[in-house]
Design a protein around this nucleic acid. Structure first.
Lengths: 257, 257
DNA sequence: TTTAACTCTTTACATCGTACGGAGTTATGC
DNA sequence: GCATAACTCCGTACGATGTAAAGAGTTAAA
C-alpha cells in the first residue's frame, strides 16, 4: 500500500471499531492491547515522525505485541488510518460552544481557526487522502459544530452544506503551505531558507522574462527565500471568504424582507 | 518511501532535469530511453491507475529498460514525482490568454475552472503532497497566468499573491471531493452509492441525536446515499470567493479615488 | 590505443502490508 | 471434569517497493 488512504477499509468494520460496537469477546485470554491503545500509539508516532513512520509493525511494537498481533485487533492499515483520523479529530473537540447567529462572522472565523490549528497540530492529516467520508463519532461532531455556526442565518439546508464545504475547502487548501513548512523542517532538518539558498544559484541562470508578473509578485511576496507569510495569507483569504458569505447572507435577508 | 511526495529530491537535480539543463553526454552509448519518455510513461500510468501503480520498476518497464536503469536518468522517485507534476501541468497549458481587467470576475472564474478541470483530469496530483514548491517552467507558467488575471485591479503585489493563494487554495480543497469520487470508482469498482448502501444498515443503529443539525443538513444535501452534488458546491463556493474579492477590490478602488 | 565518461544490468537488502497456520488460553456445553 | 469452540498471540513466509553496489559493455576523447 503505497498511498496513505483513509476511508478505504471494510466500511462496516471501520465503523464498528470507531463506534466501539464490537461485541465483547466471551472466551479466550485477555487481550494485551486494545484498539484504542493501538490507535493512540499510531497517532503519536504520526505526530512525532509523520505518516511515513506509521507501520503496522511499528505500532504493534509500541504497544508491546508482535507484528502480526496487530491484525487481531484491526483488520488492516486502511482501517487503522480511519481510526486515527476519527481519534485525532476527537482529541481536538472541546465542549460544544453556543453560537449566536448575530455573531456569525466571529463564529465562522473561530471555526476556521480551530480547523487550521488542528491541521497544524497534526499535519499528517493533510496527507491522508480520504477515499470515503470517515463517519466516526468525532468526525461527525466536528461537522455538527461547524454547521451549528451556520444556523439561523437564513440559509437553506443545501446552502448551509455548501457554505460548510466552502470554509473547510478553503482551510484545508490554505493550511497545506504552513503545515508543510513545519513538517519538512522536522523531517528533513532543512529549513525553507536553506532550501532556497541551495536553489538560488540555479534560479539565477533561468530566464524569467516569460514570467514578468510572477517574478515581480513572487519577489515582493517573499515567496522566494522563505520569507513567505502564510499566516497573513490565511487571514486575508478568510476575510474574503467571510465577506463573500456576508454578501450572500445579506442578499438573502433583503430578499426575504 | 511510503508517502508520495514531490519537492523532496535533490532540489538542484530536479530543477536541472525540469529545465532541460543537463549537459549532453559526450561519450558512452546512446540512451535507450530519455527522461521525457520516463516521465510521460509515469504520468500515463498515474492517469490510468493512480499513483499507487507508479513504481520505478513499472516505469522502467514501460519504456523498455531494466528496473535499475531508471536511476541512470532520474536520481530517484522523489525527482520523478517533481518531473511528473511539472510535465502534467505543462500539458494543461494552452496559449496565454489576454486578460482584460474589467472582466476580472470572468477571468478568475475561468482560471478556477481550468484548475478544477486539471485536477479532474489528473486526480493523482491531489495526492502529491508537495514538500517544497516545484519550480518548473510549466508550474511557473501556470502561476504566471493566474497572476495575470489579477493584474490591473488596484491590488498591491502582496495582495495579488494572497488573492492567488485564496483561489488556488479553494479550488484545491473543493475539488478533492469530486476527484475522489472519480478515482475511487475507477480503482475499486465500488460506486459511492454502493458504498453507502453497504454502510446504511449500520448507520441505522447509531444514535444521531447528538448531531441534529448534521443529520438534517446531511440528509437534505444528499451527502448520504451518494446523491451529493459536488459541481453545485464548487460553483457556490467560487461565487462566494469572487464576491469576497469584489468587496475588497471595490473598497480599494473607492479608497483610492 | 589507452582511458575516461557514460549506459545498462544483475544481484542484493531493508522495509512494507499481510496471508497462513499453529500454539496457548479461557469460558461454555455436555 | 472434559471436550470444544472462541479467542489472543506469534513465527514464518511472500511479493512489492525504493535503491545501494558493483560490474559489463559502448563510445568518444587523449
Amino acid at each position: 500500500m503505497a498511498e496513505d488512504i483513509a476511508g478505504r477499509g471494510d466500511p462496516v468494520k471501520s465503523l464498528q471499531l470507531m463506534w466501539g460496537r464490537m461485541e465483547a469477546p466471551r472466551r479466550g485470554p485477555k487481550a494485551k492491547a486494545s484498539v484504542a491503545e493501538l490507535v493512540a500509539a499510531a497517532v503519536s508516532i504520526a505526530d512525532a515522525e509523520g505518516l511515513d513512520a506509521v507501520s503496522t509493525r511499528r505500532v504493534a511494537d509500541a504497544v508491546g505485541i508482535s507484528p502480526m498481533s496487530f491484525y487481531t485487533h484491526i483488520p488492516g492499515k486502511a482501517e487503522l488510518l480511519d481510526l486515527m483520523l476519527d481519534a485525532v479529530t476527537g482529541a481536538g473537540l472541546t465542549e460544544i460552544p453556543e453560537f449566536e447567529p448575530e455573531h456569525w462572522r466571529r463564529n465562522l472565523a473561530f471555526i476556521a481557526h480551530e480547523h487550521r490549528a488542528f491541521y497544524m497540530r497534526h499535519p499528517w492529516v493533510l496527507h491522508l487522502a480520504t477515499h470515503r467520508p470517515v463517519l466516526g463519532p468525532n468526525t461527525m461532531m466536528a461537522a455538527e459544530i461547524a454547521l451549528r455556526a451556520l444556523e439561523g442565518l437564513g440559509l437553506t439546508d443545501l446552502e448551509m452544506d455548501h457554505a460548510f464545504t466552502l470554509i473547510t475547502s478553503y482551510v484545508h487548501g490554505a493550511v497545506r503551505d504552513a503545515a508543510r513548512e513545519k513538517m519538512v523542517k522536522e523531517l528533513t532538518g532543512m529549513t525553507d531558507n536553506e532550501w532556497w539558498h541551495r536553489v538560488a544559484p540555479f534560479l539565477e541562470t533561468v530566464d524569467f522574462s516569460p514570467y514578468p508578473v510572477l517574478s515581480r509578485v513572487g519577489a515582493v511576496a517573499g515567496e522566494t527565500y522563505g520569507a513567505h507569510d502564510p499566516i497573513g495569507a490565511f487571514a486575508f483569504g478568510l476575510e474574503r471568504v467571510l465577506d463573500g458569505l456576508a454578501v450572500f447572507i445579506e442578499s438573502k435577508a433583503a430578499q426575504k424582507g
